[in-house]
Design a protein around this nucleic acid. Sequence first.
DNA 1: CTATTTGTTTATCC
DNA 2: AGGATAAACAAATA
Length: 271
Amino acid sequence: MPELAEVEFFRKQWNPGVEETVASVHAHPRARIFRYESAEKISDSLVGRCLEWSAAQAKQMAFRFAGNCWLGIHLGMSGKLSFADADYEAEKWDHLVLRMDSVALVFSDPRQFGALRMELPEANQAPKWWQDIAPPVLSDAFTPETIHQFLERRSRSPIKAVLLMQETFPGIGNWMADEILWRARIHPKQPAGSLSAAKRKNLFAAVREVAADALRVIGESWGNPPDDWLFNHRWKDGGTCPVTGCQLVRETVGGRTTCWSPRRQRLTTPI
DNA sequence: CTATTTGTTTATCC
DNA sequence: AGGATAAACAAATA
């Protein structure tokens, strides 16, 4: 499920554990979740450590424990974080449970596309996987020029596929990409390099707007987006465009199910 | 039983 | 070399 805003929401689910110490860890060692770091390493590193703070960048979360100990979590397709009573017993897809004084922090993920990372860098250093995340789309480092250069490099790919590339659009996933293209009035199959200057401008504005709206509505409290977003119509069979009223189209573009409004989003050059 | 899924990595082809 | 594309990963749900 999780894209930028969902990840931020899930990160906050572990806030009840901030300033608490890990008393014990449940980890299922055979879970695919532990393909980068063993369950033993994660358990051994965390027991006795206090959770100091956490942060989210793109689809990645960092939980920082005492002694510059970093637990990285990626939620993949079906990962979730939650909190529970301190005596909570792990259920089937709970791969990691941190039992603390007054709360248990739970990571569950049925499909196991998610992953954990554990690192203890030198003091005052952040792990490479955290440092290497591209600048947030809401930061000053993300500019129209950022988009322009990337569209030139990926000029032959459909714009939908390009928006999903985390190296330039960190945190954007399938629903956000469709929402962005719908707001910017760009056809998902439009080759990235063929976008007009006006469409590139629309695209930049829409990326910022969708990221900010998603963080405000979903990132804060998992709210339901208003009906004037594409969001509430895109999965429904027979869904209609909230602006034009026409039937929405669903088709695979760039390997992912893509939804668009044919009246609002038109190809401007032949493929 | 078949098709589908809000993600990333790897392999393969160009 | 680097870009484009498809498959693989795994389980729930319809």
